[in-house]
Computed example of a mutant assay.
Amino acid sequence: MLNPHWLRTFAILAEEGSFTRTGARLDLTQAAVSQHLRQLEDELGPLLIRRPRKIELTPAGAALLDYCRDADHAERRLRQRLRQDEDGGGEISLITPGSIGLCLYPWLLELQSANPELVVRHRFAPDAEVLTAVLDNRYELGLVTLRPDDSRLTAQRFAEEPLELVLPAERDLHDWDDLVALGFIDHPDGQAMATRLLSRSFPDAPGMRHMPCSGFSNQIGLILEPVARGLGFTVIPRFARQAFARQEALRVIQCDTGIVDTLWLIHRAEWPLSARAQRAIDYLSQRMGKQ
Rank of each mutant, 00 (worst) to 15 (best):
Q219I: 09
E16W: 07
L163H: 01
C103M: 11
M1Y: 00
R246C: 11
L47F: 01
P203W: 00
L109D: 08
W107M: 13
S201M: 06
P106K: 14
A280N: 09
L104E: 10
P226A: 13
G88H: 12
D149H: 13
E160A: 04
L28G: 04
F124M: 15
H210F: 07
F158Q: 02
G258E: 15
W176A: 06
C213V: 15
K54R: 14
G190W: 02
R69I: 04
Q39R: 14
L2N: 03
F202N: 05
P148V: 05
A228D: 01
H122L: 08
G207K: 03
L163F: 03
R171K: 15
W107D: 05
R121H: 03
A133Y: 00
L173N: 08
I92N: 04
E170F: 11
D204G: 01
A240H: 01
A60Y: 02
I12C: 06
R157E: 14
L94G: 02
P59H: 04
Q247C: 05
P46M: 05
L44S: 00
N115A: 07
P203S: 00
S214E: 08
Q30A: 15
W107L: 15
Q39D: 14
L173M: 10
L111E: 00
Y139D: 06
V33Q: 06
V33F: 11
E86D: 02
D175K: 15
P148K: 07
R209W: 01
H187V: 12
R138N: 10
P212R: 10
Y105M: 06
L284M: 13
R123Q: 09
G289W: 05
W271T: 14
R200T: 09
M1I: 03
P203A: 02
E15K: 13
P162F: 00
N115E: 00
E160S: 11
P46F: 01
L82F: 13
L40V: 05
A243L: 07
I253E: 02
A128L: 15
G215P: 02
I223F: 03
S274K: 10
A228Q: 07
A62L: 05
H187S: 12
R251T: 05
Y283K: 14
H36P: 08
A194H: 01
F239C: 01
W271P: 03
L37M: 11
L135V: 06
C213A: 08
L65P: 02
L57C: 01
L179A: 07
P212Q: 07
E41D: 06
F233Y: 12
L167Y: 04
Q278L: 13
A133L: 08
R196L: 09
K54F: 12
A63R: 12
G232T: 05
R69F: 11
I92G: 02
Q242I: 06
S18Q: 04
W6I: 03
P203T: 01
C255D: 03
A243F: 08
G258A: 13
Q35N: 12
Q291N: 13
D127Q: 08
A62C: 06
M208W: 00
T257L: 12
W107E: 10
D177Q: 14
W6M: 00
Q247S: 10
D150A: 15
V119Y: 10
E75G: 13
E164I: 05
A249L: 13
L153A: 12
E43K: 13
L109P: 01
A71D: 11
G61K: 06
D178P: 14
D149T: 15
G289C: 07
A155L: 09
